[in-house]
């Protein structure tokens, strides 16, 4: 799993770390049942406070991504298919709305946009 922290960012550290772990779980780089590093070792490696990593794990647990077993550690929760597909759809929708905004400002209409999509799909199929 890759976690990169941007120091000058407006986004708080815990948010940056949480999003990247969440991403790794959703992309299934971290598999169901896989053990996550302890809050201390994650904090040491990322040079952040153990209070920050603690908060990250607490929030991930609340959102159902991981489970923590006292004395054993934290693990990736068993896969929630609904959550996963919802998240994937959300990602694509976000990109598409950016594309739509851009097309509109550049004066490209709906039909043109559709045919572009068709071409991309066809190229990909070949």
């Amino acid at each position: 799993m890759k976690i990169i922290i941007k120091n000058g960012s407006e986004r708080p550290l815990y948010q940056q770390i949480k999003d990247q772990i969440k991403g790794a779980i959703l992309r299934q780089e971290l598999k169901e049942g896989e053990k996550l590093p302890s809050i201390r070792s994650l904090a040491n490696d990322l040079h952040v406070s153990v209070l920050t990593t603690k908060r990250v794990y607490e929030e991930l647990e609340k959102e159902g991504f991981i489970i923590t077993i006292v004395g054993k550690g934290s693990f990736v929760a068993s896969e929630n298919m609904e959550m996963l597909s919802e998240f994937k759809r959300h990602l694509v929708e976000k990109k598409l709305s950016e594309v739509w905004q851009m097309a509109r400002t550049l004066g490209i209409n709906k039909e043109e946009l559709y045919s572009m999509m068709d071409i991309i799909f066809e190229e990909d199929d070949e």
């Binding site: 550290l13 209070l51 920050t52």
Partner: peptide, 8 residues
């Protein structure tokens, strides 16, 4: 205070 929060 927590270091990370303080610096943020």
């Amino acid at each position: 205070e927590s270091k990370d929060e303080l610096l943020e």
